[in-house]
C-alpha cells in the first residue's frame, strides 16, 4: 500500500499531533513571553542580589539541552511530589526553557535602545508604569521581533523532542506510523512538511512586524 495513502488513512493521528504541537507552542508562548519580560525587568532593574540570582538561573537553563530539562520535569520532579502528565510536563518544559532565552533577547533589545527617548519621556512627566507601557515596551517589541520569531521556530523544533516523554505530537505520529506499517518515507515527509509550514507562518509574521517597524522607525 502506498505510504501517502497510509498517512491519509491515519490522518486523525497526524491531526492530533499537529494540534498538540501547535497548542503546546501557543500556550508556551502565551506564558513565557510575560514571564520572560518580567525576567528581563529583573535582570536590568532589580537590586543586585536578585538580579544575580535571576542571571544564574537563566544562564543555567541556557546551558542545558531541552531534552534534559524535559526529563527532569517528567521523571525527576515526581520524586519531589510534583507530578504532571506528558502534555503538561511538555508545556512546563517549553515555557521555562524558552522564557530563559526570551528574557535574554528582551534584555539585550532593551539595552540597545537609545536612551534619549526615555529621558525625553521622563522630562515630559511620564510616570514609570506609563513610560514602560507607552515608550519602552513597544520599542522592545519591534526591536526583538526577528529574534523572537527565531526563538519560536526553535521552540517548534524543540517540541519534537517531547515525543521521547510520550507526548503525542507531530513526530510521534510519524514515528508510530513508521513503526506500525514499516513505511518511513511518507510519514516523515509529511511531518517535515508540517514543521516547514509552521515556520514559514512564523517567518511571514516576522516580516509583517519588520515592515511595520520600518514604517515607524525607517
Amino acid at each position: 500500500m502506498n505510504g501517502f495513502a497510509i498517512v491519509w488513512q491515519e490522518r486523525a493521528l497526524f491531526l492530533e499531533g499537529l494540534w498538540n504541537t501547535v497548542s503546546l507552542v501557543v500556550a508556551a508562548i502565551a506564558i513565557s513571553v510575560p514571564l520572560s519580560a518580567l525576567g528581563a525587568v529583573v535582570l536590568v532593574e532589580a537590586p543586585r542580589p536578585v538580579a544575580r540570582l535571576a542571571r544564574a538561573l537563566i544562564d543555567l537553563t541556557r546551558c542545558v539541552p531541552f531534552l534534559l530539562l524535559a526529563y527532569v520535569i517528567y521523571y525527576g520532579l515526581p520524586q519531589l511530589g510534583l507530578r504532571f502528565d506528558a502534555w503538561w510536563a511538555g508545556l512546563v518544559t517549553m515555557t521555562l526553557y524558552n522564557a530563559a532565552y526570551l528574557a535574554e533577547i528582551f534584555r539585550s533589545a532593551w539595552l540597545a535602545l537609545p536612551k534619549e527617548g526615555f529621558e525625553a519621556a521622563r522630562a515630559y512627566g511620564f510616570r514609570p508604569a506609563t513610560l514602560y507601557r507607552r515608550i519602552v515596551l513597544p520599542q522592545i517589541a519591534y526591536a526583538s521581533a526577528p529574534l523572537v520569531g527565531g526563538q519560536i521556530i526553535v521552540m517548534i523544533k524543540d517540541s519534537a523532542l517531547l515525543m521521547i516523554i510520550t507526548v503525542r505530537e507531530i513526530s510521534f505520529a510519524a514515528n508510530s506510523i513508521n513503526a506500525n506499517y514499516f513505511t518511513p518515507f511518507a510519514p516523515f515527509v509529511v511531518a517535515i512538511g508540517m514543521y516547514w509550514m509552521l515556520s514559514l507562518i512564523v517567518e511571514a509574521w516576522v516580516r509583517r512586524v519588520a515592515s511595520g517597524a520600518r514604517l515607524r522607525y525607517g
Partner: peptide, 8 residues
C-alpha cells in the same frame, strides 16, 4: 532550518 533534529 524548519526541521527538528529529532525528525531529521
Amino acid at each position: 532550518r524548519a526541521t527538528p533534529l529529532l525528525t531529521f
